[in-house]
Design a protein around this nucleic acid. Sequence first.
DNA 1: AAGGTTCCCGTGAACGTTATCGTTAGCTGG
DNA 2: CCAGCTAACGATAACGTTCACGGGAACCTT
Lengths: 326, 326
Amino acid sequence: MDHGSSVRVTIDDVARAAGVSRQTVSRAMNDKGDISEATRRKVLATIEELDYRPSAFARGMRTQKAGTLALIIPDITNPFFPAVARGAFDAAAARGLGVVVHNTDADPAAEAEASRRIVDDGVAGAIAFFEEVDDGAVTALGRRVPLVVADRHSPDPTVASVRSDFATGTRTAIAHLRDRGHVELGMLDGAVHGKPERRRAFLEALGDDGDRVVTAPATVAGGTAGLRELLARHPGTTAVFAFNDLLAIGAVRALKAAGRRVPGEVAVVGYDDIPMAALVDPPLTTVHTDKYELGRTLVEVLGRRLDGHPAEHRTLAPRLVVRGTS
Amino acid sequence: MDHGSSVRVTIDDVARAAGVSRQTVSRAMNDKGDISEATRRKVLATIEELDYRPSAFARGMRTQKAGTLALIIPDITNPFFPAVARGAFDAAAARGLGVVVHNTDADPAAEAEASRRIVDDGVAGAIAFFEEVDDGAVTALGRRVPLVVADRHSPDPTVASVRSDFATGTRTAIAHLRDRGHVELGMLDGAVHGKPERRRAFLEALGDDGDRVVTAPATVAGGTAGLRELLARHPGTTAVFAFNDLLAIGAVRALKAAGRRVPGEVAVVGYDDIPMAALVDPPLTTVHTDKYELGRTLVEVLGRRLDGHPAEHRTLAPRLVVRGTS
DNA sequence: AAGGTTCCCGTGAACGTTATCGTTAGCTGG
DNA sequence: CCAGCTAACGATAACGTTCACGGGAACCTT
């Protein structure tokens, strides 16, 4: 009921106690110049003694920047994202930044709403997994706040990016399947926009017309349905490459239900290496992307941007993890 | 580079454009009284027209409360929490609130640091999954900011709580196992503090001395190790109840590796019903807790608290989901 | 008709910080 | 010895909002 009843220790209290002006206190804690080493230490000591904490509001009011950054993701429930978020949390905490998460369900309207909130809240910077193919929105947000986009490139040179190299990841998976002797390959593509690399690399490697690619919702249920469709089109299919692990797991389930042995009769390889992948039976062969590292790198790149460096563009290398489905 | 170069539309601009004072504008947007319906509509219209957004900083400066709430969890990577977070995100978004997430790894020092940040950032309220058994810290935080704790009760009457009824959940699971004819039961308890209900209910139902309970880290690896220990102590064990699904999945793996059929020779039931539970082979029988609903309820309770209502204490009922391991 | 409400609305002040500019003392160089 | 510089610090003014007042008009009440 009486929240906030205790009086706040302000910068003036510190100034008074240290026998200096509040401006000097400000200089001491913000590592600005124009202050002698002696007084700075004294000020810092009294700050410690009084347990003074600067008001984030008052500070943000002047600087228009908060000590927090925004993370826009489609769905924290999608097993790909918790690890990404964790990497981002840890790296942000190390920098003394908080992270406010926005779920969008890959809905453009929700993405716009999140962007709106972000500029309103005056966060220090933003990290975004955007679905919206229209670059206008991205550029608009990038103009208002330092921005790093994941798995996507922005035409705006001030928007940094970190992406996983899907093309070579896909090629590695297909090469692996060919090494195992498979010739009739099929693909389960995820029904998501803006991520054509996997499908493109697949078609490129096969010189195919696309009839061997079926698109389905990127879920387990989508995987079982998609696999049936694929088998209906090409009964001789002997190996399946999936857009992500959820689809792959669904495919394996459908295969087992149909009485086909995995990997004896049909091999399956997924993408992402979510935690579940190692625990299903048989454990899933998949292209591993380091999600924690992705999250970490995203805030690292954002941090460098906040420190005044130019926008970087980094690429993370995936690697194949061979388990029991191939 | 030139972030924030565009000039801000302030409340004074709106006031000028609408031909009223800024106080009237404030009244219009905050649904305060003392304003006629006519002028309020006019003000709202000009707000819309000028695309005015109140400064969160300036507002927070006066009210000491931001439009954001904090969510303290041990680990977003633990499959239990993404769904909780999602429920919290959705409910918060519906209320126009942002959510800043703090990962603690159940480390008291990290929990203290998160609490520190929370009061510093002046969030509107906080939701916490605390590990710290010492109630002093919880009460201290609760005194500074409206607080709702999950799966735990606070002695402080101003701290609200939402908990899953672990005791009856556990009893239901054990009754199910007994119905199946099992008599030699064992339990895999998680090595976490502050959650004795499951173990207690288990021991209570058995009238046992605790020798049939082995404690292990609440992970898959902990489950396999714990099960071996359990079998070493009581080779005749025919049914295992686990603290959570991770432990249960680990147990099933160990069982299969040891050549024991599940559920033919040994039955296993987990707790939580994480997404993985339905996908392992055989699919896991488990006590389902509605994690999304938990997250949703947590912010609902917090919201009512913010609206001035007294602290509530709610309990969510779990239910048994029988699948393939029992 | 005088006093009392109620309904609207505006004026000043305050929240706690940082930016800008000014001031002082001490030092340098010619 | 004085102009000019620099280092260290302080005073004032913002940043944009809400709170505590106060006051005028209209509408009752007796």
